[in-house]
């Protein structure tokens, strides 16, 4: 491929967990500190490929699969004015990805267009600016965000055209408290949930006519600052996967990282269904060596029924949410701690990032 830089794959080496198999490794020699990693579909000339997107503070790069588990960098966008904070993937969209830029919090969201049929170019443009607290890319090229100006909160959904430009906008009814995370309700295009700063779950109807706030339900006091990752509706109940970065250790559940909670939207009552706890340190709970003890969950991702997170020990853990068990643990490598853990578009492939910008792809 013209312009692509071939990379040598690193094969399975000294992994302690057999359920993760190293497939390949990407290293952007021009980038320093890894900020985020994601996957996206890239299509040209009638074919579609799953590509990797990596972000450093000042650039976003697109990586294309080559033969034999090798990857080549196809394009890099330079974003030098404001630091990149996160990649905002649009789940079922081809050739289009969004990024959030800012200092301590998101100040603007831009779309990056990978290929334009009109002029074969790589473009970028502003979608939204403001004090943005949360953003999520939804199915069908939609983007939802919450932002605050003084006491006023705006929750807005924007539909993007294939060329990236904003097509339609819709304001959703905001709750009183700040929305900190969003999740689509799988299989229900018009349903959206969010978690708020006072630990509530909010349900909206987003049908492009109304942005009604349908229900607000409290998560409970035992697990403060919950973040929603995924939601499913089944048998009249709303099941939400929550992470608990600030949860305390309890006798019944250890230190919870993720919980599956069932809500009855009619009565606003909830019940914990399954709890996935942090793995114990290698020395065990009673005599935990700080260098190997997985004390806290730092950041993570959920796809289907699999969850992954970077822990304070520098390890990456993987859980089966239906079993409520940790099924794989990737210890820090010789090059240092892991800082990023993301699923590709399926939970069969884990993207693990190191601080120096190296991204490892593991089959799970």
């Amino acid at each position: 491929t013209a312009g692509a830089e071939p990379l040598t794959p690193v094969l399975l080496d000294d992994l302690r967990e057999e359920s993760l198999q190293l497939l390949s490794k990407l290293k952007d020699s021009s980038s320093s500190c890894a900020v985020d990693v994601s996957t996206m579909w890239w299509g040209a000339a009638g074919s579609r490929e799953l590509c990797v997107v990596t972000a450093s503070e000042s650039s976003v790069s697109l990586w294309k699969p080559l033969a034999s588990d090798r990857w080549g960098k196809l394009h890099t966008w330079q974003l030098r004015e404001i630091p990149v904070i996160q990649i905002v993937p649009l789940p079922d969209t081809c050739n289009l990805v969004c990024v959030a830029l800012g200092e301590l919090e998101i100040g603007e969201i831009r779309w990056l267009l990978l290929y334009s049929s009109e002029n074969d170019s790589f473009e970028q443009s502003l979608v939204k600016a403001g004090n943005i607290k949360a953003v999520l890319g939804l199915q069908e090229r939609r983007l939802v965000s919450s932002s605050r100006t003084g006491q006023e909160q705006q929750v807005e959904m924007v539909s993007l055209a294939e060329t990236g430009r904003s097509k339609d906008g819709q304001t959703l009814m905001p709750p009183e408290e700040t929305v900190l995370a969003f999740a689509e309700v799988e299989g229900m295009r018009e349903a959206l949930v969010g978690t708020t700063a006072v630990n509530s779950i909010v349900v909206w109807s987003v049908n492009l006519k109304t942005g009604q706030l349908l229900k607000k339900m409290h998560v409970g006091y035992s697990y403060p600052a919950s973040i929603c990752h995924r939601a499913y509706s089944d048998s009249g109940l709303l099941f939400v996967v929550l992470s608990h970065p600030h949860a305390k250790e309890s006798e019944s559940c250890g230190t919870p990282a993720f919980r599956l909670v069932a809500f009855n939207p009619r009565t606003a009552r909830s019940a914990g269904v399954l709890c996935s706890s942090l793995p114990l340190g290698q020395a065990g709970r009673q005599r935990c060596d700080p260098s190997v003890c997985h004390r806290r969950y730092l950041e993570g991702d959920v796809q289907d029924t699999s969850a992954t997170a970077v822990l304070t020990s520098g390890a990456i853990a993987v859980w089966d949410l239906l079993l409520g068990q940790c099924t794989a643990l990737l210890p820090p490598g010789p090059q240092g701690s892991w800082v990023l853990a993301r699923w590709a578009t399926t939970s069969a492939c884990l993207l693990a990032g190191q601080r120096d910008g190296t991204v490892c792809l593991y089959r799970y």
């Binding site: 229900m188 109807s205 009604q212 349908l214 109940l237 939207p265 009619r266 009552r269």
Partner: peptide, 23 residues
Amino acid sequence: CSVSDLGPISLNWFEELSAEAPP
């Protein structure tokens, strides 16, 4: 609280809440 304590369940909760909510 267990799932059996969540009160009466409606399979059409989304449609019902949408109809009841102020526009």
